[in-house]
Every structure is written in C-alpha cells, then in structure tokens.
Write a protein that binds this DNA or RNA. Structure first.
Length: 119
DNA sequence: ACTGTGACACAGG
DNA sequence: CCCTGTGCCACAG
C-alpha cells in the first residue's frame, strides 16, 4: 500500500522484484545493492535498489543488504544504521574495527540455495 | 523538461 | 588502503 509511494510506474515492479530477492537471503548472510541489481538483470541500478530498501515493508529483511565494501550505507537516519548493525550482530555477523564485515564469509548468492552455510 | 540529491559502484591516484 | 571523481538511475521540486 503506502510502502511503494516512491516506487510507482515502472519502478514499482522493480521494487517488488528486489524485495522478493531480499526475502530469500538467509539469516546471518548478506547481499550488496549492486549484486541484487545484477541478479535481476538490471546492472547499473544499484541506487534504485537502495530506494527499494528505503521503502521496504516490515516483511523484508532490509538489514541484510550492505554496500560492495561490506559497510552499512550512509543515510540521514543514523538510528536506522545502528539498528541495521544490531540486527546483523544478533544473527552472528561480526564487524571489524572500521565497521566493516568480511564479505568473503557472509556474502550470499541466490545460486547457493537457502541452505547456504552461515560462515 | 531541467536540476539537485541520494541506503551505489568502480577507476584512478 | 584511503580519498576523489565520474557514471548511474530514479525521484522530488
């Protein structure tokens, strides 16, 4: 309903597809904005994935989406960033001194299947 | 239609 | 490895 206010016209369907992929990410694993765009056959639309996250409904584990550098993306709402880190740590994701996570351990690819090993 | 802004990404230096 | 510039695309004014 009101969640796709910024995802109208051609963008709404895109947001729906993004959310569908994010919902499949297993707990304790993550995907990057660009990786999701590529997986949907839309290389170059990483920023659009960011928009989809901004308006994602409660049923979407948005906290499992990070930047290609393994960092929590900058945004006006600092509390949202803190919440993202809390949720990831609660799922066992470890952050280093610089606030980065090791993508070699946590990055998940849809082709791995849901039963992917939690690092 | 044009411009500014943003939960991105990659190439250079 | 860090910082900067450039390319992107979608949305708001």
């Amino acid at each position: 309903m009101g969640y796709s206010i910024a995802c109208q016209a051609s963008g709404e369907e895109f947001c729906q597809r993004v959310w569908a992929v994010v919902r499949r990410i297993p707990a304790g694993r993550v995907m990057t904005y660009g990786q999701i765009a590529d997986h949907l056959g839309c290389p170059g639309r990483a920023r659009a994935v960011g928009h989809a996250m901004r308006f994602s409904p409660p049923t979407v584990p948005w906290h499992r989406v990070v930047s290609s550098r393994g960092m929590i993306s900058e945004r006006p709402d600092r509390e949202s960033m803190a919440e993202q880190r809390r949720r990831l740590e609660a799922e066992g994701v470890r952050f280093d001194e610089a606030g980065r996570i090791d993508l070699r351990l946590y990055l998940w690819d849809p082709s791995e299947g849901e039963s992917g090993t939690p690092a």
